[in-house]
């Protein structure tokens, strides 16, 4: 077996070389398409994750309501139950990551009074201005997020944000 492999080592080398050449050619030709598919996949993952969170929250709400003996008739202030983030960015990549991170930064505003937040919109901005958001796993590129608009509708806080890159590419390849 080993002797056979040794005998055909030239063929193996050519095979490996061909494989690498083919893979490189494939990438040069189709990398744009692959990137678009990856972006689409990330958007689907994100939407799926959001839906899952929403389902969990609704289930918790159902449990809470079913445990209440008498329905509350007294007027309660409307609270934020859902936060939707829309990103206005020139960058093609990392939009989903920005959305997810902005949502996690704004999590403290959940279950807060809508009136309180709408009267103090600078609070939302100050939370976002606190830290730049990395848009890749190595954190070599980060963006600063600025609030553009806020809208409050049916227990939903919808926020439009714009981004600005705060770090440029390092000249060295980041070490993992």
């Amino acid at each position: 077996m080993f002797r056979q492999a040794k005998k055909h080592r030239y063929s193996f080398t050519i095979f490996l070389f061909g494989m690498i050449t083919g893979a490189s050619l494939f990438l040069f030709l189709y990398s744009q398409k692959i990137d678009s598919l990856y972006l689409e996949r990330d958007a689907i993952y994100f939407a799926n994750n959001q839906k899952y969170k929403r389902i969990l929250k609704l289930e918790q709400e159902i449990t809470k309501l079913s445990q209440q003996k008498s329905p509350q008739t007294a007027h309660q202030p409307e609270t934020i139950k859902k936060i939707i983030v829309e990103v206005d960015s020139e960058q093609r990549f990392g939009t989903e990551m920005i959305k997810a991170q902005v949502e996690s930064l704004l999590e403290p505003f959940l279950d807060k009074s809508m009136d309180w937040v709408s009267n103090n919109p600078q609070l939302v901005e100050s939370v976002l201005l606190k830290k730049p958001i990395p848009i890749d796993e190595e954190s070599s590129q980060t963006v600063q997020v600025y609030v553009k608009y806020l809208s409050f509708h049916q227990q939903t806080l919808k926020i439009w944000v714009s981004t600005e890159e705060v770090s440029n590419n390092n000249m060295t390849i980041p070490q993992k």
Binding site: I20, A23, S24, L27, F28, S31, Q32, I34, D35, Y38, L39, R92, F93
Partner: peptide, 16 residues
């Protein structure tokens, strides 16, 4: 070219 193959194998955006 080889970095692109590596990116593809590690589930990264190859073009970017």
């Amino acid at each position: 070219a080889l970095g692109g193959i590596g990116a593809f194998l590690t589930n990264d955006y190859p073009m970017e």
